[in-house]
Structure formats: C-alpha cells, structure tokens
Simulated scan of single mutants.
Amino acid sequence: MKRRELLAGGAGVILAPGLANAQDAYPSRAVQMVVAFPPGGQADIVARPVSSALERLWRQPVPVVNRGGAGGAIGNASVARATPDGYTLLMALSSLAMLPEADRLNGRAPSYTVDQLAPIALITADPTVLVVNADSPWRTLEDFVEDAKRRPGAITYSSAGNYSTLHVAMAMFAGAAGIDLLHVPFQGGGPAMTALLSGTVQALSSGPGPALSQVRDGKLRALAQWGATRAPGFEDVPTFIEKGYRDVEFYIWAGVFAPVATPASVQDRLRASLREAVQDEGLKRALAAAGSPIDFRVGDAFATFFREDSARLVRAVQRIGKVD
C-alpha cells in the first residue's frame, strides 16, 4: 500500500511540472492566422504584418491562411469550429457580427454565431472610403449623388459579398442620399478592388489600406469617407457627416479572435503577445504605409467595443433586409 502511494505521489511530482511546462511553452508549433477573404483586402493587409511580428516574438511560424467565400462566413465558421487550443486564430472584420444576422433574415441557419468566438485584441479601426476610378466623371460627392439621382440603378459598386462591411457601408450611404445603386458582390475586398480598377464596376466603399496606394498612384479618386473625422492619408477628403449625412458613419475594424473554449491562460498569453507585437517597428511601418494606423484595444475595452459595434451593425443589416 505504501509502495503504491509512493508511486502515485512520485507520478504526481513528475507530471505536474510537465503540465506546467506545456502551458508555459505556448506556442510550441505553428499558429494559423485565418483571414476569411482572398488576399488584398483589409483583413489580409492587417493580418500579414501582425503574423510577421508574432513570428519574430514567438520564433514559431504564423502562416496567414486565406479562406474566403460567402462574404467571410466560411473562414469565420472554420475558426469557430476549430480545436480551441490557441493554434487557430481569426483576423476578423466588422462583418463578423453581420453575417449570422443576414443568414437569419434569409431563412438560413447561421454557419456560426459570435458567441463561439472570443475577442482577443482589436488591431485597427478605420473608416471606409468611397472611391471611384480617376477617369470617372465624378470629381466630388455632389457629382456622384446628382448623377445617381438622374440614372437610378445605373451606377454599379462592388463589395466583398452580400452583407459584408463594404456592402453595408454603401447601403447606409445610398439610403441616406435617397439614391439607387446597383450592388455587385464579389468574394472579398481584393476582388472587389480589382473589379473597380478594371472598370467592371464604378464605385467601391474600401478600407483605407487597400485604397490609399491606388489613390496616391492616381488610379482612383476618393470622394468621401465614413468616419467622424478625416482619416490619415485622406486629409483632403470630406466625411459624409461634413456633407450633411448625419447618420452615415461606418468603420471597418480588424481584430483577432480565438475559439471561445480556448483556455484562459492561452487567451491571456495571446493578449500579452499582441500587446507586444503592436510595438514592433516593422508592423507599425507596414500599417502606417497602408493607411491603417494601430488602434489597439484588449480585454474589456475590446469586448465592450465589439459588443456595441456589433449591435449597431446588426441593426443596419436588419434595415437592408432580405437580399435576393
């Protein structure tokens, strides 16, 4: 009996440090950063420098995995259902909360729900920007609205999919301006931008990151922006609020999420790592160059932001209603 007790006690002494080391070692292998859109969109632009900074910090690979489709729902759902061990993360956009509500409106069971994901940290929160081709006839927002009123349904705009951030922002503007625009959904912000640059569509509500370089290169013209104040890099572009559209305010944010059952110790490690990662000079340079300055929020600050913004966006989706 005493021998069995000694063996059990010895096993406990041996196993306990092993368990502690396993927790302390996170991450001990590659950590996937899922982006629910094709390359080139806002989530991708934020995810890549964040993953690079984490790789330098952790000395482990952090590959960005683009898993697009269904306006972001496929990639979001894949992380919601992933093993909750901290090795599959999501760089989500504000559409995260809108897509399940859109499914309900259209009589479909949501492929995921927001309570399946734990908010880890907000990285950026930028207003979207209304951009058109530089050779278009519209030099001002007033030009655009006047033409749209003359030709209802004739002006086309692209988006990252039905009920995506880019769709909802344009729907908010069109409703406030009393104009009818033709929505052409694509499978992500990158393809939506390509459609505008190629002339397939005529307008786009873009995140500032993807739009800034195209505006600087003279390929696109920015007519207005959805923020309460003018965004860095777009200081010469008026806001919709300045133009009298008081209810047109929208932000495309990017934040890191994990499956909700991820252990608290791993979530804490992730938050601490991301707090350190956003101080990385390479990350700061990359996001500044993309026109997406860091707006880091973690813990209760991000959870509150996410809850309040999600409620506002769900109401916006409900106003759009069913999309055939």
Rank of each mutant, 00 (worst) to 15 (best):
S213H: 15
P127D: 11
D135L: 02
T262D: 12
G218L: 05
S310H: 07
A70R: 02
P39E: 11
S136Y: 08
D85S: 11
D217W: 08
E276L: 00
F186M: 09
T262L: 01
A311Q: 14
A289C: 09
G71Y: 05
D280L: 09
L122D: 15
N66M: 05
E242W: 03
E142Y: 11
H167F: 01
V323S: 06
I155T: 05
T83S: 09
S198W: 04
W138M: 04
P49M: 01
V260L: 13
L7H: 07
T140K: 12
L130A: 04
T88F: 11
S205W: 00
L166N: 15
F234L: 04
W226Q: 04
A80K: 03
P61G: 08
V131R: 12
G153L: 01
V131T: 03
L99H: 01
A192R: 00
Y112F: 09
L57K: 13
T229K: 14
D24I: 04
D126K: 05
A77N: 13
L182G: 06
R81S: 15
L274F: 00
Q279I: 00
E235A: 14
L99F: 03
E101K: 03
G188R: 00
A288Q: 14
Q23P: 06
E249A: 07
L270V: 02
L7I: 07
V35D: 14
I155Y: 06
L212D: 15
N21T: 05
Q187G: 02
L204K: 03
G282R: 05
